[in-house]
Amino acid sequence: EDGVLAGIHFEGPFISHNRCGAHRPDLLRDPDPALVRKLVDAARGHARMVTLAPELPGGLDSVRMLADLGVIAAVGHTDSDYATTLEAIEAGATVATHLFNAMPGIAHRAPGPIVALLEDERVTVELINDGVHLHPSVLDLAYGTAGANRVALITDAMGAAGMGDGLYPLGPLQVEVKDGVARLVEGGAIAGSTLTLDVAFKRSVTVNGLSLSQTVESLSATPARLLGLSDSIGSLETGKLADLVVVDSDGYDLVAVMRRGRWVLGGDTFSTVKPA
Rank of each mutant, 00 (worst) to 15 (best):
N129L: 14
V151S: 07
A148E: 14
G159S: 14
G187R: 09
I154M: 09
V185H: 03
E176F: 00
V185W: 06
E186C: 06
L134S: 07
N149I: 00
A148T: 08
G166C: 09
L127G: 03
G147S: 08
V177Y: 01
E126A: 03
S137R: 02
G180W: 08
L195W: 05
R183M: 11
R183E: 10
L134I: 02
M158H: 00
V181W: 01
V132N: 14
T155V: 07
P172I: 05
G192H: 02
A160C: 10
L173E: 12
D198T: 08
D130I: 07
V185S: 11
L184G: 07
S193K: 13
G171T: 08
L141E: 00
D198Q: 05
I128Y: 04
L195C: 04
R203D: 15
N129T: 08
G180N: 08
Q174N: 12
A142S: 13
V175C: 13
I190V: 13
I154H: 07
Y143I: 12
R150Y: 03
L210A: 05
V185F: 03
A189P: 01
L127S: 01
D179V: 04
G209H: 03
N208L: 14
A157Q: 01
R150A: 12
A152Q: 12
P169M: 11
S193L: 11
